[in-house]
Amino acid sequence: MTTHICLVSAQAAPNLLPVLDPELKPKEVALLVSEKMRKAANALSTVLKELGIRTTTVPLEDEHSSSVIEEALLKIASEREGEEILLNLTGGTKLMALVAQTVAQAANWRSFYVDMDTDAVVWLDKTPGKKLAEQLRLPHYLKSYGFELPDSPVRPQITRDQHDLMHTLITQTGSLEKPLTQLNWLTQLAEDKKQLKIEMSDQQAGNHSLEALLRHFTEAGLLQVNQNTISYTDEAARDFVKGGWLELHAYKCVEAITGETGIRDKAANLTVIGGGVKNEMDIAIMARNRLFVIECKTAHMDRPEAPKANDTLFKLSEICRRVGGLGTRGMLASYRPVADSERKLARALNIELVCGQDLKNLRDQIRAWISAKSRS
């Protein structure tokens, strides 16, 4: 029987990935846990148990004491005499790792480190490294960071009419930008009023560009126009018109490159709850054993009533940091161009930008983004 000893830290993935690898999967995992990491250990333990792996939590009364750490490790060893023990040195504090490696050498345990940039196990006994099998899916990954999914991940199906409409909106980005801004604003008003109808002003109703855009949405079966009144087919149609179409377009791009990029799992409109706080992700992708998050915006972010581009970038960066750990990557797909200052902020926050006319190449941009080496 094989046991993994894991040093718990805020980053769950390096402890979870080797456990899921068929060649390394243990019967039991012993979690060495400081007081500060108790919540992280509970989340990781929950996932391990769901995966059918016996889990033992070994609390450290003082993670700053080498003797306390050594005593805890020796206790694990004495209770598993004659069993194979593998020590995962990726997590924990530096002191925990140093003491654990010293004990491992004395006890003849094999030790390894998970390199998250290469998705490989690095053995400390100079055994050739091993590429980890990509087994992670969104629910277990997110749960390992302490987040619950109140609903099952959504993997939407796109109709032919929706596909054709999205193609029109993407290929005519420049000419449709102004009328789409008006339609977004009207549709947001309808949603705020919890209505499926909204009245246009005479000026809006007489706008030829808006009239032409409304025809596209009418042909797709999403709304009807009667004189000055826009009537949405249902709430889902209203959401699509307000900007949900760009999320579906991004999801369609992800779906198209799933096989070639090794995407393990994907979802749209994913809601996760942690610490009583709800976090929403337009598109969530599991690839290369890490989480990728795409935020989609069709509103003018320089308008008073709209979320500002800087706020959107900071919010996306915070979601990436809290929900998926240090390896998580974020992308903002915006129908509108953003200012140079906002591009600089995106680079500083390690957020990928695909804006305006660049959306025509969104599939290629996502492919390159997912395949790129980490910049952090």
Rank of each mutant, 00 (worst) to 15 (best):
residue 66 S to Q: 06
residue 61 E to Q: 13
residue 82 G to W: 14
residue 60 L to D: 00
residue 71 E to S: 06
residue 61 E to I: 08
residue 59 P to Y: 01
residue 79 E to T: 13
residue 63 E to M: 12
residue 81 E to M: 10
residue 87 L to P: 04
residue 73 L to G: 01
residue 71 E to G: 04
residue 88 N to W: 03
residue 91 G to E: 02
residue 67 S to K: 02
residue 59 P to K: 01
residue 89 L to R: 01
residue 57 T to A: 13
residue 79 E to P: 11
residue 73 L to M: 07
residue 88 N to K: 10
residue 80 R to I: 15
residue 85 I to C: 10
residue 83 E to A: 05
residue 76 I to S: 08
residue 88 N to T: 12
residue 80 R to D: 09
residue 84 E to Q: 10
residue 83 E to R: 11
residue 71 E to Q: 12
residue 73 L to V: 10
residue 57 T to D: 10
residue 76 I to C: 13
residue 63 E to Q: 09
residue 77 A to H: 10
residue 92 G to R: 00
residue 66 S to R: 09
residue 87 L to F: 07
residue 61 E to H: 12
residue 87 L to N: 04
residue 61 E to V: 11
residue 58 V to Q: 04
residue 90 T to M: 08
residue 88 N to F: 03
residue 71 E to Y: 06
residue 61 E to M: 07
residue 63 E to F: 04
residue 77 A to G: 01
residue 79 E to N: 14
residue 64 H to T: 11
residue 62 D to G: 05
residue 63 E to N: 11
residue 79 E to K: 15
residue 59 P to H: 02
residue 72 A to L: 01
residue 85 I to P: 03
residue 92 G to I: 01
residue 68 V to H: 09
residue 58 V to N: 00
residue 83 E to V: 11
residue 77 A to C: 11
residue 71 E to H: 05
residue 75 K to V: 09
residue 78 S to I: 10
residue 59 P to V: 02
residue 86 L to F: 12
residue 86 L to P: 05
residue 87 L to G: 03
residue 84 E to L: 09
residue 81 E to W: 10
residue 68 V to W: 00
residue 77 A to E: 14
residue 90 T to C: 06
residue 82 G to S: 12
residue 90 T to H: 06
residue 63 E to A: 14
residue 88 N to L: 04
residue 83 E to G: 09
residue 68 V to S: 10
residue 82 G to D: 14
residue 68 V to L: 03
residue 58 V to Y: 04
residue 75 K to W: 14
residue 77 A to N: 06
residue 82 G to R: 15
residue 79 E to I: 09
residue 65 S to R: 07
residue 91 G to C: 05
residue 89 L to F: 10
residue 70 E to D: 09
residue 84 E to S: 10
residue 83 E to W: 07
residue 62 D to C: 01
residue 68 V to R: 05
residue 79 E to F: 14
residue 90 T to N: 12
residue 80 R to L: 14
residue 92 G to V: 02
residue 76 I to G: 12
residue 83 E to S: 12
residue 88 N to G: 03
residue 73 L to R: 04
residue 91 G to R: 00
residue 60 L to R: 00
residue 69 I to A: 06
residue 57 T to R: 15
residue 88 N to M: 06
residue 89 L to T: 06
residue 75 K to F: 06
residue 84 E to P: 08
residue 57 T to S: 15
residue 91 G to W: 00
residue 65 S to Y: 03
residue 61 E to C: 04
residue 84 E to R: 13
residue 84 E to I: 13
residue 80 R to Q: 13
residue 62 D to N: 09
residue 85 I to Y: 08
residue 89 L to S: 01
residue 85 I to S: 06
residue 78 S to K: 15
residue 90 T to R: 04
residue 69 I to V: 06
residue 71 E to M: 12
residue 69 I to M: 11
residue 61 E to R: 14
residue 78 S to T: 08
residue 60 L to N: 03
residue 71 E to W: 02
residue 62 D to Y: 04
residue 79 E to G: 06
residue 76 I to Y: 11
residue 85 I to K: 03
residue 83 E to N: 10
residue 87 L to H: 03
residue 72 A to S: 01
residue 78 S to D: 14
residue 89 L to N: 04
residue 75 K to N: 13
residue 80 R to Y: 14
residue 65 S to N: 10
residue 74 L to E: 12
residue 64 H to S: 11
residue 92 G to S: 02
